[in-house]
Design a protein around this nucleic acid. Structure first.
Lengths: 163, 163
DNA sequence: CGAGTTGAGTTGATGTGTCAACCCAGTCGG
DNA sequence: CCGACTGGGTTGACACATCAACTCAACTCG
């Protein structure tokens, strides 16, 4: 294993199957979320994090840590979501504002989350079956670790996402 | 299996591991491609298809079939790539132009493909190992089929990607 | 105290993706 | 021959992501 930079035919095939599956699945999920609920997967990600957070309020950088987004993407996106009434920014410590989910945002996530979950079940969880699903979850963790370890050994003083 | 729309704890964990792996891996690969070669994964996808096509020339809708992109995305992106000198549009049948890879585009893909492949090997192929890689490839095909079958039975006269 | 520094957040410019509308050459029915 | 239709491709407006530059409060240390 690892006899050069190139991939052999089997490896190519598997890798490209994975890429196609990924594109097909995310496109499918995003399109439905968009058409049925007018919500992007980015909106969804933010609302899930807020709604799972007990108080329904988080600092922007906590959301950034949870989602791995760049801070400027976060800022832009939160502004848009505020304009659409899904969240609100509240000043509290006379400095950095807290992000609060609104009633409207809560209603939106409650409406679409079960439908979304059902689709994940139908096309991912149930197609794989329990054993393969668990195995894929573990394999995924290994890959994340491999990239993480590589980065911290490669560029010590950097923040994790950079390299 | 399939006892309702919601996911249980194990399923949630595996699904979220998968999502994180996916984001981490694509971010990592894209960032390197961008920083080392000034090329996006979209550029890469187009150039790979063109350079694998024997004559180095394809019609835009062939590229569209290969990449699953929307036609307007294709048009916009090809215009940008032409402006950067990676491809050229050539009139031939007095109608739809052919897309031709330039010397510069060929040099670019030849330079970055091995490095990219090595990274895929390092963080994906070798971490999984042959068996799990093949299994994942097969599972991916099943998921793609499941979505495809669903769509054609759900909305018969539609084009595949729409639903 | 006061100058530099750090870290969270914002802003603006630019490149990219998506949607809907359009263009236009060929084709098909009358 | 002409009008409607089809399908590849383009265009423009808008939403979004990324990058670099900036703001501003708190902290450091001289």
């Amino acid at each position: 294993m690892g006899k050069g930079p190139w991939l052999d035919a089997d490896e190519q095939t598997a890798w490209r199957s994975y890429l196609l599956m990924n594109k097909t699945l995310t496109t499918h999920l995003e399109r439905h979320l968009q058409r049925e609920f007018g919500m992007s997967s980015s909106d969804f990600e933010i609302l899930v994090n807020l709604s799972e957070s007990e108080s329904g309020r988080m600092r922007a950088f906590e959301l950034g840590r949870a989602t791995q987004w760049e801070k400027s993407r976060m800022s832009h996106h939160l502004s848009r979501m505020e304009k659409r009434g899904l969240i609100r920014k509240e000043a509290c410590d006379s400095r950095y504002p807290e992000i609060v989910i609104t009633e409207e945002g809560l209603a939106a996530i409650r409406a679409c989350a079960p439908v979304h979950a059902a689709r994940v079940r139908e096309f991912f969880v149930d197609v794989l079956g329990k054993d393969r699903l668990i195995a894929l979850g573990e394999a995924s963790d290994e890959i994340v670790d491999a990239i993480g370890n590589h980065c911290e050994s490669d560029c010590p003083p950097e923040v994790s996402g950079l390299c």
